[in-house]
Simulated assay, not measured.
Amino acid sequence: MRVAYVVGTTTGGTGRHVRMLAGGLVRRGHRVVVAGPREVEEQFGFGEAGARFAEVPVSDRPHPVNDARAVLAVRRTIRGADVVHAHGLRAGALAALAMPRRSGAPLLVVTLHNALTAGGFVGAVYGLLERIVARRADRVLVVSPDLGERMGALGARDVRPAVVPAPPLRAPRRTPAEVRAELGAGDRPLVLTVARLAQQKGLETLLDAAAGPWSGTPPLFAIAGEGPLRGELERRIGAGRLPVVLLGNRDDVPDLLAAATAAVWASRWEGLPLSVSETLKAGTPVIATAVGGVPGLVGDAGILVPYGDPAALRSAVQKLIYDPAEAARWAEAAARRGAELPGEDDAVRAALDAYTRS
């Protein structure tokens, strides 16, 4: 089988997911090409996974001239493919526009990894892209039920859940005591968030919760990640003297998870966040907002709270950090759930099933 993947600008889970699928298909004897921006190949190394890479300048924002060039480049790249699998709304719409209108055209599969959150003109443009994907894709894979309902309402013919596993979690290289000493946590509870510093992640609610009041020693909140909100967050943390440290991008997340009392997400929306999957596999207690695909991912192995409610988030954190027995119970639940999550082979098999015409 000849499979063409189309990706846009990505710095995280989408790129890792495509690399995993490409490598899995190559190992099974399929021919794979990945089309996307040069910087995505440089970050994720699709060529190292055995796929051929074709540079396509997919911009991160709609642009008529650039998008027309991208459509032509995608059309050249997918020539001869049996299946075209685009990841993300932008890449999905470009792939849909690039598809030949003839019998025997490749099967078009689109995986939607994120929800539409922008408003105004950009939101209207993305709404148009959603309709293009819904009406032209043969199959749409979604990371959350709300995305599936939206695509179905827009006319998608075949909507299925996406299987997006977290990569295997390596063992920690440092002891929790060493990590806590580095962060300045001392004997305080350590609450970890792994997230991009962006609007979607609801970090303003996290800071509201961190401000207290606390019924015991205030925990130290550590946020691992980078993004456009760093400056704004730093100003608020400093002005309020909040017990929060910004760690930047880290390559030692397993060490941080092992040292953390709990891991917290205050997100406005999430699909199948790899950071939550990694936390479950690490057996670290999970507290997250009940949005998108999070409830289905976590199941009953974590504490779910409403989005935008700092008091509920703070109450859930206090429930864990001041009661060791409660924390141990949630840690065991997380580890059990982590062991049940799908692996890379499951994801590749699900993709191959989606590539079958029916």
Rank of each mutant, 00 (worst) to 15 (best):
L247Q: 05
R337I: 06
A171M: 09
D323L: 04
G45T: 00
L220P: 00
G227V: 13
P189F: 12
A4D: 06
E278Q: 14
E204V: 14
Q200S: 09
A209N: 11
D255E: 10
P62Q: 11
V133F: 10
E332W: 03
A282M: 09
G50N: 11
R135D: 10
A171Q: 15
R135A: 14
R69D: 05
L272P: 02
D67L: 06
A137E: 07
R131G: 10
P189A: 13
V140Q: 10
L190V: 06
V3G: 07
R336I: 07
A162H: 05
L206T: 05
D353W: 05
E182T: 12
V71E: 06
T217C: 11
P218V: 06
Y322A: 01
R150W: 04
Y5R: 05
E178L: 02
S267W: 02
P100H: 05
R16H: 12
H17R: 07
L147H: 12
G225V: 08
D146R: 13
A301D: 04
E234I: 01
P100R: 06
L304H: 11
A51W: 03
A124S: 15
R52P: 00
D158P: 08
P254T: 00
G8E: 08
G240H: 12
L256Q: 04
A73E: 13
A153V: 03
V264E: 12
G240Q: 11
R170Y: 03
A96Q: 11
A185R: 00
L192S: 06
G13H: 02
D353K: 14
V164A: 05
R2I: 05
A93Y: 11
Y126R: 13
V253F: 02
P165M: 07
L97R: 13
A137T: 09
V18Q: 03
F53S: 00
A105L: 02
G212A: 13
A339I: 00
D60K: 14
E149T: 14
T77M: 12
Y5V: 01
P324M: 05
Q43I: 07
A51G: 04
L313C: 03
A260F: 03
T284D: 04
R16V: 13
G186N: 09
R52F: 05
T117V: 15
G343T: 01
A35P: 00
L128S: 14
A347C: 04
D353Q: 14
Q43M: 13
E232K: 15
G36W: 02
G88T: 10
A70R: 01
R268H: 14
T9K: 12
V194S: 03
R102A: 15
T9W: 07
R157D: 09
L256P: 07
L341N: 01
V58E: 04
R69N: 08
W269D: 01
W330F: 13
P285H: 10
A51D: 03
V6C: 05
E344P: 00
L313A: 01
G24T: 01
A262L: 14
R236Y: 06
I237F: 08
Y307M: 14
G186F: 11
P218G: 06
V264Y: 11
V3C: 12
R235P: 05
I78V: 15
T279V: 15
Q200Y: 02
G47N: 07
A209L: 07
T193P: 06
P189I: 12
L107A: 02
R19Y: 01
M151F: 15
D345K: 06
A354W: 09
V6H: 02
R75I: 02
G231L: 06
E340L: 13
A290L: 04
P306C: 07
